[in-house]
């Protein structure tokens, strides 16, 4: 499970020359890798003089960072207040039960990552489910089920 460490040098160089913060460096690293691989964080500590503990602290404090790879599809349930009063908890609980994962986790087959977000500001569409960046407004449990089934089916027919 080798991770290509080659881009790390360039990321660190740009961080130093543009005087960006460590948070920005980690954001760019995650943009590059899709997550923050342990080896990459260690490589960063070798490239720039920063303790691994500080990088690890940032990576676990801020919710947009993840230390594990995401699933093929990301299901994001908005849990903002407007979505909450319009039934988001029912949808979220249903997805949790059906996928057998909690928010932030990925299914064993690597197909789905379930996440929540505090508010996307698309409150007119609540409850809101975002599947791979596409917004599905006024979602019902039944519709969520159908979406899940069609994605799972597509994955079965077209395994990578």
């Amino acid at each position: 499970m080798g991770v290509d460490l080659e881009p790390v040098g360039r990321l660190c160089e740009s961080h130093v020359s543009n005087r960006t913060s460590l948070v920005m460096l980690l954001q760019e690293t995650q943009d590059k890798y899709g997550y923050l691989p342990r080896e990459v964080l260690k490589q960063i500590t070798r490239e720039i003089d920063v303790p691994l503990a500080r990088l690890y602290g940032l990576a676990t404090f801020y919710r947009s960072f993840t230390l594990t790879p995401r699933g093929k599809h990301e299901l994001c349930v908005c849990t903002g207040t407007a979505c909450h009063v319009r039934g988001a908890p029912t949808v979220l609980q249903h997805l949790q039960r059906r996928l057998g994962v909690s928010p932030g986790e990925t299914t064993e087959d690597g197909l789905f990552t379930l996440v929540t977000v505090n508010c996307l500001g698309a409150c007119a569409l609540g409850p809101l489910l975002v599947v791979d960046g596409k917004y599905h407004g006024k979602i019902t449990v039944g519709e969520a089920d159908e979406l899940l089934s069609s994605l799972a089916e597509a994955a079965q027919q077209n395994p990578q």
Binding site: L22, M24, Q27
Partner: peptide
């Protein structure tokens, strides 16, 4: 980077500084 508390001024500053 995903932290509600960073709306608080001193936390926001810490975050801009990369902490």
């Amino acid at each position: 980077a995903g932290a509600f508390v960073c709306g608080e001024e001193t936390a926001l500053i810490a975050s801009v500084e990369g902490r």
